[in-house]
């Protein structure tokens, strides 16, 4: 069995660091739709790609979270990126590969990947 002492060691390490992740308004939120429709369409690898990618690249002030059905089931997996002071960006029919691109170009580079957004589908 994995020991709980390891967890105590993490606490001791972390408590010395002042900058614990805060979920305040300066945070960019990446929201993955994880209702039945999203899960059935393949939201799990997308959510995985975002959480792992953000963690691996050590990106700060970005929070990956999940939500229910937003009523656009035919476009699932849907990912919304909400950055403070900016318009919400809705990416549709996401995959783990597209997620990696979004992290690279949008989250890090600041450039919206319009080819994957909902606007590209309804025009």
């Amino acid at each position: 069995m994995k020991s709980l002492e390891e967890l105590a060691a993490i606490r001791n390490k972390m408590q010395n660091q002042v900058n614990l992740r805060s979920e305040d308004s300066s945070c960019t939120r990446i929201v993955v739709g994880m209702a039945t429709c999203g899960i059935a369409a393949g939201a799990r690898p997308v959510l995985k790609a975002f959480s792992d990618g953000i963690q691996e690249k050590g990106i700060k002030d970005v929070m990956v979270t999940q939500t229910g059905c937003v009523g656009l089931c035919q476009y699932e997996p849907i990912v919304e990126v909400m950055a403070p002071g900016k318009e919400k960006v809705t990416y549709i029919k996401m995959t783990a590969e597209k997620a990696a691109e979004v992290i690279e170009h949008h989250i890090i580079g600041g450039e919206v990947l319009t080819k994957y957004t909902i606007n590209s589908a309804i025009q």
């Binding site: 994995k2 709980l4 390891e6 967890l7 993490i10 606490r11 972390m14 408590q15």
Partner: peptide, 27 residues
């Protein structure tokens, strides 16, 4: 129980998140 051990360290801190994953996988 995890929270009690962690004091105020959030469960979504990268190190804790990794620990939870390993805890589940290994057990």
């Amino acid at each position: 129980q995890f929270r009690q051990i962690l004091g105020g360290v959030p469960l979504n801190t990268p190190d804790v998140s990794d620990y939870i994953k390993e805890y589940l996988d290994e057990n």
